[in-house]
Every structure is written in structure tokens, then in C-alpha cells.
Computed example of a mutant assay.
Amino acid sequence: MTSTSTPAAPGPELLNERSIGGILVHLLSIPTGVVGAGLVYLVATNEFTKRNARNALDWHFTVLALTVLTFGSVFVYAELTEQGITNVVTLSAPIAAGVGLVISALLLVWMIVTTCTFLFGFIATGKAVFGDAWRYPLTPALVERFGSQVEVPGGWPGVIVGYVVIAPLVIGTVFLGPHEGAAVLATVFGMFGLIMVLVPLTGVAMYLHVKRTSAAGTNWKPHLVAYIGAPVLVAVLAYALSGTFTDSINPGGDAMYVFLAAFWVASLTYVLRWRTTLR
């Protein structure tokens, strides 16, 4: 009686090749877009994670460009046809009708692409489960082509300094105004960019800078948990106190402003410590 040997299953070997980050980055980037995929790409050390994050980032950069084009066109069209803030008419009726058709087509394409974002995200996740870094269809290799040419002014500390400078300006417009006209729209976009882009990017900048300084063997060993965890803890306490001891109708909003202020203090402290210790 002869025995036949069964080839070893590729499962364990496949588990070594793939990573949780490489699988989940596609799902994470569905609601967070460029920000989520970009942050994973920046902090990833595993090659599989980095390739998947790069593929997701290429797609979401494309979607972002289409979104800016579409809604920028809608905004300009509204302003030029007495439907916006300025109430100025500069387009004749035939031209306005033609431009309206183009914008309608752009909106249709944008809705299709947005739907594809969900579909492609789930497909890429499934592919990643089986060890494949799937490229999204019709996306240029933007990160691979231009990523090495992009430099952060001042390095990663420059991002932290950027938050220290920009955060008070944005928050100041919320409380001090102006509160009418186009300034309101600018304030809304400013707060959105501050919370959704600059805050997480600053946290990643701290992480990468701490990693670099630790690898360089410097005497300064910043505790990243303190710089990021302390503002979160302060915000949680603010939420609890606001809901318990005040008549605030929006404790979550209060906690967000407290977090932004506490994170500003932490960022300023980080920059000052960096400047005085390593320079």
C-alpha cells in the first residue's frame, strides 16, 4: 500500500505575507477617503500594508479630484446664475443651460464613482484577505509617481507647527466671526479641514518624528501617549462635566473644542521641547 503526501496548505504562509492593516485599509478609507488611506500609508512599515494603502490612496485621490471639480463647478455655477451668495448674474440663459447640462453630467459621474468607492473597497478587502494587493480600476499611479517628490516643509515638525499656527485662526473665526456671507462657508470648511485632516495628520507627524528621533539615538525621548492621550482625556472630562454641570445643548461640541485647545497646548509643548532639546 502506497501512501500519498498532501501538499501543505498555503494558509500559514499566506498569513505571514498579509497584514491586518493591509486588509482593513480599504474599509477604513471608504468613510475617511484620502485622510484614512494616507495616514495608513504614512505609518505603515509592512510592505503588504503599504501597497494596499497606496492603491486605496490612488483611488481616493482620484475621487477627491472629481469631487472638487464637481462641487466647485456647482458653486461657481450658482454664483454666476444668481443662486449663490453674491446674487450676480453673468451668464446668459443659453450658456447657463449648457453649463447646467455639463454640471448635471458631472454630478451623475460623481454619484457613480461614489457608489464604486463602496464596491471597490469591498472587492479590494476581499482580495487582500487572500494576499493580493488589488489595484482599483482606472486609477493613475499617483503615489508611486509623485510620492517621492513630495516633501513636507520643515519635515514632520513643520506639520505640528502648522497646527499650532492654524488652529487658533480657525477656532477664532468660529467664536469671533465674521458670521455672514461667504465667511460662514469658509469657517465651516476650515473646521472640517482642521478636525478631519490637520488633527490626525499632526498626530501622525508626532508619531513619525518620535520614531525618527528614537532611531537617531537622541537624548530626548518624548512620550507620544502623553501628547495625544492627555488631550483625549481632557476632552472626555469636558464632555462629562458639560453634560452634568452645565445647561449645554451640545456637550459633544464642547468636548471637541476642548480637545482642539488641549491638543494645541500639547502640540505647542512638543514643538518647544523639540526646539530646546535637540537644537
Rank of each mutant, 00 (worst) to 15 (best):
V76C: 08
G84S: 14
G155M: 05
D254L: 09
V89L: 15
L169G: 13
A215H: 08
L198H: 05
P178T: 14
V143M: 09
W110I: 04
K50R: 15
S248C: 12
L201H: 03
P178V: 12
S29Q: 02
T62H: 12
L64P: 05
V43H: 03
I23W: 02
L108K: 13
G158S: 06
V236W: 14
V68C: 10
T6F: 04
H209G: 00
K221I: 11
F120T: 02
L80C: 14
V271F: 01
I23C: 00
M196Y: 14
W110T: 05
F263R: 01
V129Q: 02
V143Q: 04
C116K: 14
L42K: 12
F71E: 09
A262M: 05
T246F: 13
L66H: 09
L106A: 08
F245K: 15
A205C: 06
G155C: 08
V68Y: 11
G217A: 06
A37N: 06
K50Y: 04
T70M: 07
V40R: 00
D254T: 12
G72L: 08
A56Y: 01
L27K: 04
M206N: 04
L268R: 00
W134E: 03
E47A: 14
T49K: 01
P10Q: 13
A205W: 02
I166K: 13
Y270S: 00
L198P: 04
F259S: 01
G229I: 09
P200F: 01
I85Q: 13
F122K: 00
V164I: 11
R135Y: 02
S242I: 07
L39E: 03
A8R: 06
A65T: 11
V40Q: 01
G203S: 07
